[in-house]
Design a protein around this nucleic acid. Structure first.
Lengths: 274, 274
DNA sequence: GGGGCGCTGTATCTTATGTTACGTATTTTG
DNA sequence: CAAAATACGTAACATAAGATACAGCGCCCC
């Protein structure tokens, strides 16, 4: 079974004429980058002519050069998105829970790799500045995350509302939303039309939207001021929201830190109310 | 000091107009692959027009699109040649988010280290066997986890109920609970008296309790048939429920797998109801 | 509420990329 | 050793890619 193009090449390199073999060796030497460049650059790197490169990819079974490049990109995408395959942790072999945990840990690392401190700081700052109200809402499976975040934020600052229940209920809350307000939305596949509609209307009213979504980006990204794209793939029938959950906790921690002074007083006040 | 294009983007994303920001978010979401494709494909993925993409790369300081792609390729080449950079992300040293992430990852590893496959399998089996009803409930901050789990379990099997609202409401549900039923409780510090009382009464009725708690164990552990102790310490003012969240997802996956045959049919039926 | 500025998309154009045809060189085989 | 077949490169071609000009629109500020 041949899975990667590199294997395919090393499988057939023996049957290739000299020029094409030089092309193959050049590609393998710094795989797969040379293959992503133009035919002219590839040919120059290999020291052969352009047609030789094209004959080379034709011999590999590709109809044309772009098709070959697409295949390389797909392969690269798979490689970049599952760093698990490259760590190849053998100690965990045979265990049933491990794949799930490993995938989740990878998802988190990968999610944070695409997330800079500055982005998080910006979002936290926006959530901490108390100009307007903060609304949170989520989809079928992600609404608990919205609740979780709301439960914490509501303690350290006023005017934090979780939007629950039926669509018509939140739609009526739109009237209270304006430019100074923030709307935090959780939406992963399969994206919910109702949420998209709601986000659009909120956007039209000037509400700043912070979106938690998956790597394929909910259509709401179109209206969002900030987008957090978490990895969701795990060996399960369901997508995982764990990475988004951790981002949410990180943000909660950051906002709390920023509001330390004001927040501490508020928490004391709350305690005394019990 | 800005070293990678990703950092450059997140540095300037704040000053960008909506369309270009959308391009930026799309690129970051699965970086750097989208940037290696053609302008047309990039624009389609981002849902904007080609010129917007070109203006986007121009704003980043590149003379033209090919120059931008070359920069991405160079970056990718450097990354691929030193695989260490992906396991031990050096850029994150001294960063603000990293302690939070690191602590969370540690918590998860530690949580699962104290959790055997057999324990998880037993719990999953108990949740999958459909003799009685399944109830889920959580505390002030952990109730969203109960909701999350309930949202999934309710899809693959009947008689799954999340207990929400006021204490008096769930107390009244006790009358429906018996020996054949399962109660999943989430309770971490500070443990809630109301939950402890509820657990005790349920236990007296013969309900099997599955407890998600922290490493110091809620008093409910006394009544529980199964106890899952997750690590919660993170550098934040709040405790982290992330490890418990991942255990919950792992259990959801396991139960789903066990109910595969029955569950698949049920999911199809649900789909057809939409 | 009106005027100006800036952003975005459509349509057009230009460039350069991939592709093909053909002639020459090289190797292989009878 | 000769003839045929194969491989390779040069050069011309077609296509698709990136770039640009311009008009419409929304937004913000006065």
């Amino acid at each position: 079974m041949i899975s990667s193009i590199a294997e395919l090449i090393s499988d057939r390199i023996g049957t290739m004429p000299a020029g094409e073999r030089r092309a193959a060796q050049t590609l393998i030497a710094n795989y797969p980058l040379t293959g992503l460049k133009t035919v002219a650059e590839f040919s120059a790197a290999a020291g052969v002519s352009s047609p030789t490169i094209l004959r080379f990819v034709a011999r590999l079974g590709f109809q044309n050069y772009p098709e070959f490049q697409s295949a390389l990109q797909d392969e690269l995408a798979a490689q970049l998105q599952s760093p698990a395959s490259r760590t190849l942790n053998p100690s965990s072999a045979g265990s049933a829970v491990s794949p799930m945990l490993e995938a989740t840990l990878d998802n988190m690392r990968e999610t944070f790799r695409h997330l800079t401190d500055k982005q998080l700081a910006d979002i936290a700052a926006r959530l901490a500045e108390r100009r307007g109200k903060t609304f949170l809402i989520g989809g079928r499976f992600t609404d608990p995350l919205a609740r979780y975040m709301a439960a914490h934020l509501a303690i350290i600052q006023p005017d934090v509302y979780h939007l629950a229940g039926q669509e018509s209920i939140w739609r009526d809350r739109l009237i209270d939303m304006g430019k100074r307000d923030v709307l935090v939305i959780f939406d992963i596949r399969r994206y919910q039309d109702s949420l998209v509609r709601f986000a659009e209307k909120a956007h039209q009213r000037g509400v700043q939207i912070i979106l938690f979504t998956d790597q394929w980006l909910s259509p709401i990204a179109r209206f969002a001021r900030h987008v957090i794209a978490g990895r969701t793939a795990v060996p399960s029938a369901w997508d995982s929201s764990a990475a988004l959950f951790v981002v949410a906790e990180t943000l909660i921690a950051a906002v709390t830190r920023q509001l330390e002074a004001a927040g501490a007083k508020r928490i004391r006040d709350l305690e005394s109310l019990r």
